[in-house]
């Protein structure tokens, strides 16, 4: 697959179809894969593809927008939803970007892998996909781990493993599914069963740990506003002091802004230095939008987002 990726990118760059390719490249350590930006032929070899390509690269398409010429980007099935949303929200034009879709077979969560293997990620030389398990190279040894054990949370409930909006694909689009055993929204329902006080205690404990580093905002594909509401001085929506109330306002306003736009890429949770369970918040947003308005972000290009539209016979049970 990696060779095919190199061939396609080399061809596109050679033809001049794209000026710029956004893919994955090897990082500073063998287990780290970082976004990689390729502009010329001899750099193509740097591109990699494997089970450690966690990032959602759609975010970088926005930054490539101001460059001359087209950008190419590598997307997994889940990232395709971001591309669809960006098109829907008129942030990119379809002609401006060449999308290379890939049939993803699940991505490894490094944190879980460390726990399962009992080995720090620094010693992991590489992770290879092998059907329903991963082969992990540690020094001279090779160990196999079942996929269900170490997949990213989102991969367990993946409904779109393969890209569905693309110009080129890498290899065949292969179905992939894992029986996660419980519903996609189980972690939300677990909290919903608690009392209001217990939920308050849970979230206040989480929000209190937030250091407001803004990593979740920076990594979010949907946070493309030129001036973010949290950065505004006049009116100032968010005070600077690290108070619980301000942290709560930050996360709730973000959740509201993501309503009907969150595509469950869970990048916010992955980059959070404090390990806040942000997917529990955003999964709730997705659940409500799906239940109330029968809408899922990033699937259909011509579906109207629920909070910018209405039906005359919408329910209003409490009004």
């Amino acid at each position: 697959m990696q060779d095919r990726l190199h061939d396609i990118v080399r061809k596109l760059l050679g033809e001049g179809t794209i000026e710029y390719f956004i893919g994955y490249g090897a990082g500073s350590e063998p287990h780290r894969v970082v976004p990689c930006f390729v502009t010329s032929d001899h750099e193509v070899e740097r591109l990699v593809w494997g089970p450690l390509c966690l990032q959602n690269l759609s975010k970088y398409v926005l930054q490539a927008k101001d460059l001359e010429g087209k950008a190419g980007v590598l997307v997994k099935g889940c990232d395709t939803r971001a591309i669809v949303e960006l098109l829907k929200q008129h942030q990119i034009e379809r002609e401006e970007v060449v999308v290379i879709g890939v049939a993803c077979q699940g991505q490894v969560d490094p944190r879980t892998l460390e726990e399962v293997l009992g080995v720090p990620m620094e010693q992991v030389q590489g992770v290879e996909d092998a059907g329903d398990q991963f082969v992990v190279t540690i020094g001279e040894d090779e160990r196999t781990v079942a996929k269900e054990q170490v997949l990213l949370g989102k991969c367990l409930y993946c409904r779109h493993p393969s890209a569905f909006e693309y110009d080129f694909t890498l290899g065949e689009i292969v179905p992939f599914s894992i029986d996660a055993g419980e519903s996609e929204f189980a972690m939300v329902e677990e909290l919903e069963r608690l009392s209001v006080e217990e939920r308050r205690a849970f979230w206040q404990k989480q929000f209190a740990r937030c250091i407001r580093c803004n990593a979740c905002r920076e990594v979010c594909y949907a946070c493309y506003c030129k001036e973010c509401i949290f950065d505004r001085k006049m009116p100032r929506w968010l005070d600077k002091p690290p108070l619980l109330s301000e942290n709560e306002i930050y996360h709730l306003i973000r959740a509201v802004h993501l309503a009907g736009r969150c595509i469950d890429c869970r990048e916010c949770e992955r980059v959070c230095p404090m390990n806040l369970p942000l997917s529990r918040l955003y999964k709730k947003v997705q659940k409500d939008i799906a239940e109330l308005f029968d809408y899922e972000a990033g699937i259909e290009l011509d579906e109207v987002p629920p909070l910018v539209s209405f039906e005359l016979d919408d329910q209003d049970p409490f009004m």
């Binding site: 919903e192 709730l252 709730k284 009004m319």
Partner: peptide, 23 residues
């Protein structure tokens, strides 16, 4: 049509606030 938007927002927001522990 302003209040139709309020209606949708209200429904959604109420659920979110309940979820984070606001009665």
């Amino acid at each position: 049509e302003g209040n139709y938007f309020t209606r949708r927002r209200g429904l959604f927001l109420k659920k979110l606030l309940e979820y984070v522990g606001i009665e």
